[in-house]
Write a protein that binds this DNA or RNA. Structure first.
Lengths: 180, 180
DNA sequence: CACTAGAATGAGACATGGTCTCATCGAAGC
DNA sequence: GCTTCGATGAGACCATGTCTCATTCTAGTG
């Protein structure tokens, strides 16, 4: 709590903050966990577990999975459901929030405004459910992507409409593979 | 606004309706596809692809996957994101709708009221995204489940809170396996 | 400080969900 | 009846994630 603020504000301090939360919850702080944390913090906005497995190369695969799950539990990470149905991860902003995801480049914006509670109240009345939570993701195209191929737009529109939430995971794999 | 389970007047006519939609879109109507359709229509409210693979036993696994994807494309099926992050399928009610899912028994209600458009407009203004769609699922406990263990509730509450969207797929597998 | 319980680890087998390939079949238009 | 080409099935393959179990290591205790 009155913890070792041993280093100046650099990447380490982020790790230390998370380490503190681990300790507070009674989890042990091991070298592997530190490495996974460093790997996570080194990622861009959002990433797959595989990205972390590569970033924290000395750590076993199973441990990376366990640690990421732990971070989800602690609300240090959150999940993003991409347009194509695959799940990515990202550092969580504090509190209740949702994601606005660009279908083309995968950029993610957080937003905190959430109109759902009113709907939830009405649903609760109408259905007699005890409502405990909800999941909302909004999909679109960021300005850069919309502008980049504004003219091809009408041609792409049909594909975009086709490309439901359920586009294949395989397509996603290929897309990512090509991209690197 | 809450439409409950579809009652099939008789299964054959449902199949024929779907077959018609396939033909209209220029897809061939094969024996395998009929079998998959029959398998899908024989399912309870929601199901996994594996359930369909078992129901349509004479049909190859790959074909079941292909056919289900086709049905998703045609909006005959829709996906449900369960509490634990796994995807299930269900016959789609017409038009835009969302799901209210019971975390305990997995029951699903559709609802069509959707307050998101207002939010979407505001997001579009604030972020300059072209917004194309959204995904909303609401989680809770149906009346039957809430009543069944009303007393154990306080004890379970903590678990429920823990059990984020990210609960393990393994847990889900086990749950389903036990259940049959 | 040494000791110890038990949490965490890593290797690798395993499970699941899904895609791809390719030879073959068969629906439907002519 | 022929022909075309979309659909099929078997099975290999891949990605993601979990489980097991022997071993290691953290952190609390004396």
């Amino acid at each position: 709590m009155v913890s070792s603020k041993r280093t100046a504000p650099d990447a380490m301090s982020d790790i230390d903050l998370i380490v503190e939360r681990l300790e507070m919850r009674g989890h042990r702080v091991t070298e592997s966990r530190r490495r996974v944390l460093a790997g996570v913090l080194a990622q861009p906005a959002h990433f797959t577990i595989d990205d972390v497995v590569h970033a924290a190369r000395q750590v076993g695969r199973a441990t990376v999975f366990r640690t990421v799950k732990l971070l989800l539990d602690l609300n240090i990470l959150c999940r993003i459901l991409l347009d194509d149905g695959t799940l990515h991860y990202r550092l969580s902003t504090r509190g209740h929030h949702h994601h606005l995801v660009c279908r083309d480049c995968g950029r993610v914006e957080d937003f905190t405004r959430c109109d759902v509670p009113a709907l939830v109240r009405q649903l609760a009345r109408a259905t007699d459910y005890e409502i405990e939570g909800h999941w909302l993701e909004v999909y679109g195209r960021c300005r850069a992507c919309a502008r980049r191929d504004g003219r091809a737009r009408s041609g792409r529109a049909k594909n975009a409409a086709r490309r439901s939430i359920g586009a294949t995971a395989g397509a996603q794999r290929r897309r990512r593979t090509q991209a690197r």
